[in-house]
């Protein structure tokens, strides 16, 4: 099976800044792939390299087995949903969606029919005659999606597509995008700084930092088995335990991470434990989040919301399974 997109030690430098620094990646056909990272980590530049808005300074990019180096964006069978949607303000919604077909010389009846179908697909049937100014943010986002999908791209790129939407709409769109991707079977490449978005939608996640991929794998692996302090902290804010604290728990002198939800109040067989003073305790709805001062370290734990806890300032012992302690590769 040919990969939809492959990078072989691809670099893109802006002056002295290595925006993308010798990145290797392979995105399989039909995969939902997420590029996750903080701003400036190189994920957006990678997306622009796939779209063709940027050309690599080194390395080789191929799309469906064909080298894409030097190929302009208009000759790539790749379409983008832009962060600001980039709908054409001087056209109707229908003409916006039909634009890609229009510039390829598809006749008016055919392209308008295809555009109507694409609008139906994103549940905006009948909106074709409107102008972009008459739509809400969520509707514009759907138009941008329809405008890209109507071209039947082999790869669809999504640049922070849900960033401008409010929470409820964002959750609804996450499910819808995921469903759409399953139904159409198109390779989706999502760029986001929101770990929840990446974990919930993608088949595979690549975590970016400082122009490099620091870890990639299934969402469960990234979340449960982060390899470095950066990944452990960026994806789901783990507790990072210093080598000395880890040594006192499990014997090995190395950095480890521990998820806040790994703790319980009940001591079980062969469970490890941490004892400290409760510094803060706050009700978060589904869970109660407490901050426990253990020596010089502050450990965060998510406990069941109904758990009965002693008052702040009093000692508490928390228990966790030994395999919840995740060893990290950082030098101790």
């Amino acid at each position: 099976m040919t990969a939809a997109v492959t990078f072989r030690s691809v670099s893109r430098h802006f002056g002295a800044v290595k925006a993308v620094d010798s990145v290797d990646l392979a995105i399989a056909e039909g995969e939902f792939f997420a590029m996750l990272g903080p701003s400036g980590s190189g994920k957006t530049t990678c997306l622009r390299l796939i779209a063709g808005f940027e050309q690599p300074d080194g390395g080789e990019i191929s799309i469906l087995g064909q080298s894409a180096n030097g190929i302009p964006p208009w000759k790539r069978n790749v379409n983008t949903v832009f962060q600001d949607y980039a709908l054409f303000p001087h056209m109707t919604i229908l003409d916006n969606v039909a634009y890609g077909l229009m510039v390829r010389g598809v006749d008016k009846t055919t392209r308008h029919k295809a555009a109507e179908e694409a609008l139906d697909l994103v549940k905006l049937g009948g909106y074709g005659a409107r102008r972009t100014g008459q739509l809400s943010g969520g509707q514009r986002q759907r138009v941008a999606l329809a405008r890209a999908l109507v071209n039947k791209p082999s790869v669809l790129l999504l640049d922070e597509p849900l960033g401008a939407l409010d929470l409820k709409l964002r959750e609804a769109m996450q499910e819808e995008l995921k469903g759409l991707q399953k139904r159409l079977g198109i390779t989706f490449v999502l760029v986001t700084h929101d770990q929840g978005e990446a974990l919930s939608m993608a088949d595979r996640v690549a975590v970016f930092n400082e122009g490099r991929i620091v870890q990639s794998g299934a969402p469960e692996d990234i979340y449960n088995r982060p390899r470095t302090r950066f990944v452990a902290d960026f994806v789901g804010s783990s507790n990072i335990l210093s080598p000395s604290l880890s040594e006192s728990l499990s014997g090995g002198r190395r950095w480890t991470s521990l998820r806040p939800e790994a703790f319980t109040l009940e001591p079980g067989d062969s469970r490890l434990s941490l004892t400290g003073t409760i510094e803060a305790s706050s009700f978060m709805g589904a869970v109660r989040r407490i901050a426990l001062k253990v020596g010089d370290n502050t450990i965060h734990a998510n406990l069941p919301a109904g758990a009965t806890l002693p008052a702040e300032g009093t000692p508490l012992t928390l228990h966790f399974a030994p395999d919840a302690l995740n060893p990290l590769e950082d030098a101790a």
Binding site: F53, W74, R104
Partner: peptide, 9 residues
């Protein structure tokens, strides 16, 4: 960029 992306030279 959107126009390039959609296939327009």
């Amino acid at each position: 960029e959107a126009s390039y992306d959609l296939g327009a030279n």
